[in-house]
Write a protein that binds this DNA or RNA. Structure first.
Lengths: 217, 217
DNA sequence: TCACAAGTGGAGGACACTCCTCAACTTCGG
DNA sequence: CCGAAGTTGAGGAGTGTCCTCCACTTGTGA
């Protein structure tokens, strides 16, 4: 019986593994999930083969590279729920999320729904969705958020803002705040928005929006 | 001397030419300027060689295919300038532009600045820019538009909205109106937007945003 | 009618990019 | 010091784009 023992890695191998994970964080942050494992290997200064040996699929690497980061994201959203008013909570959540997505394309791709099939991503999102809903509900309850905005609008709003952030990186990295502000101001408005997107619609749209996240295998 | 006479096309060649232009309109409308001449040829039911013989560069084809359409776009903007109030003009301009960009990705790519080097596109934009400025100025003058929004914001707003339009095509083609509405509501707001983008910044950003429009040659 | 200029088609070369394997080689550590 | 563990990156296979070229077809004017 060829026991599949998890023997500890040799010292040099362990070092390489860490280098790979670190490189992955950087590369995915700047290029999004579309970055190739070749990119990561080059950035880490190891051969491509080494990356494939350690992480046979992109998803496995993403999981290790993004675990902490996403965990912290979730905690920040929880913190927004504890803001004095619902409106403050909503604004600080949106701002924080936009900042995060602007800084780290990888987090954006995962949080906003790239590759909706990947098990790991799905788990993360299962944790985040209810928090977002709570934030929206709270703002609705206190009457500060227009009634016709739903939790399903959040991915769209963040998508729009992070698109601006992404494309303005080289020119004016912080300009996305301007357009986020404009949208936030709009959230107080009172014109007729028509029927909102349903959850499945949001998912379909998201899937289409983020081709950056179509890992192989 | 090999006179380069413009002899009239043979009857069949003329027909093919028209087919190609018509196919180009359809293909570029749905796929944006990223569509290949091969796509156009297939769609037109002619060989690739025929397309290249008639239109050696993509730009030449675009010029013929989009001339009318862009001309009409410009006229619609002029019409918005004649609306009773500056605000009406602004809203109807934004709405019309968003609708147009949602329907025709090609027009969007050209109007918003894809391939800023191409001479032909540049001429079109030279005509449109002042009109947009006039619309913004008029709304500013009557005080209905917040003072810190500039003409440079217009491409960004339209970019955001048309991104939504593009990615929601299959799901809810008209949902972009919702997010346009949200942004328009924000245009009445009064929070601090910070320093706006300058024209060169808008150009750089646009160039980066529309990879769909990097014609070859 | 028919010769020949005009026009056509699309296989295929050239290039770019991605994913991933594997066999020859290097290094660690008992 | 030697064998297992680890590394490497060229290269095969796949996808996709741009564009040329030439054998073939078709329209038309004499």
């Amino acid at each position: 019986m060829p026991e599949e023992i998890d023997r500890p890695l040799r010292r040099d191998a362990q070092l390489n593994r860490e280098r790979i994970v670190e490189a992955a964080r950087e590369v995915f942050a700047t290029r999004g999930l579309a970055a190739t494992l070749d990119d990561v290997a080059t950035h880490a200064g190891v051969g491509i083969g080494t990356v494939y040996r350690r992480f046979p699929t992109k998803e496995q690497l993403l999981e290790v590279a993004f675990e902490e980061r996403l965990e912290q994201h979730a905690r920040e959203i929880e913190a927004a729920l504890r803001k004095p008013t619902g409106w403050d909570g909503l604004v600080s959540f949106l701002t924080r999320a936009a900042e995060l997505h602007a800084t780290d394309r990888g987090v954006r791709d995962i949080a906003l729904g790239a590759d909706l099939d990947a098990r790991y991503f799905e788990i993360i999102r299962q944790r985040i969705y209810p928090l977002v809903e709570a934030i929206i509900d709270r703002a609705h309850a206190e009457g500060s958020l227009r009634a016709d905005v739903t939790a399903g609008d959040v991915p769209l709003l963040l998508m729009m803002v992070s698109e601006v952030a992404h494309h303005s990186q080289a020119v004016r990295p912080e300009i996305f705040h301007r357009y986020l502000r404009l949208l936030i101001d709009g959230l107080r408005g009172d014109s007729d928005l028509g029927p909102p997107l349903t959850r499945p619609e949001v998912d379909a749209l998201t899937r289409d929006w983020l081709p950056s996240g179509k890992p192989q295998r």
